[in-house]
Amino acid sequence: MMRNAQSLVDALREPGMVLSLDGACWTDLISIARAESLIGSLAHRLTGIEVPEQVQPVLKDAIQATDLARRQALWEADCARRALTSLNCKTVLMKGTAYVAADLDAGVGRSIGDLDIMVARDELSAVEELLLDAGWEWVKPDPYDDQYYRDHMHELPPLIHRERDRMIDVHHTTLPLTAGPTPNAGAMLENAVRLDSGLYVMAPADMLLHSIAHLFADGDLAGGLRNLWDIDQLIRQFAQVDDNFWMELGARAKLHQLEPHLARSLRLTALLYGTPVCENLAGPAKVTDNLYIHRLLARDGWGRENRKFTRQAFYIRSHWLRMPPLMLARHLWTKWRKA
């Protein structure tokens, strides 16, 4: 068996393959799935497969743990809704919370951390004030960091609720303002879909594109397997219910300047998870796709990240994507000085 995350990808893609695993392989698979935050998705995927009795409780635990994550995420979203009622603004849920609130396949078994919401840029300060009134507090009262966030990032500095100990990130766009592509946040808000609760989620194409933007712009591809699993599940569900999905997706990718990102992630998710994708949008395979795959699978059977060099290369790249060089230097310098 290969000593990397390929076994996890295989099990998600073709659950029946687990029937051939022995004890040691199962132990590897569980460690890798936990490290990639995909254990809940895997457990759901394996429902109905005859797994060894030693593994059953591990999978059951994972399902129950993600059930709880789901309930807590919906509760946090509802707390935010109640705090913001008087403002009567469009509050758009993002990422994991959006998937569970809209009851999408991508939310099944998903682990969910912070609450991410998007509001119109001109509502930011009013939203901030209401959240502070309702018991959220700044995580770190540091004027430099605050100024940094406000000037250059795509969200308010994170807030944490003083009693529930849960974080909220309030965004007004989907990417750092200094990053290359400029997704049209106004258009995303405009097209957002209202749920029964009164909260909103992005329209399908925008939701998928936001997940894609997150994969490439917001880090070093860490957690990329989970992110691409979201993308796979969103695509399968959206393409099935709407014949015009691919056309709409192409148009929205253009609008948000995310066409190359869309193409790359369609190729990656098709390679990894066998996602049925529109070939026109995916474009021709590139040599660098393999580098990405290599990087995404960089985890050994003990659950450790390996191939540090690839990781580091991606990490540096992702910093450059986010901030112009001078700004990065200033940011790091301020950090070093304070340390």
Partner: peptide, 12 residues
């Protein structure tokens, strides 16, 4: 007997 485990601990 079978190398199954509920948890992996790492010391590095």
């Amino acid at each position: 007997q079978d190398s199954y485990a509920d948890f992996t601990v790492r010391l590095e």
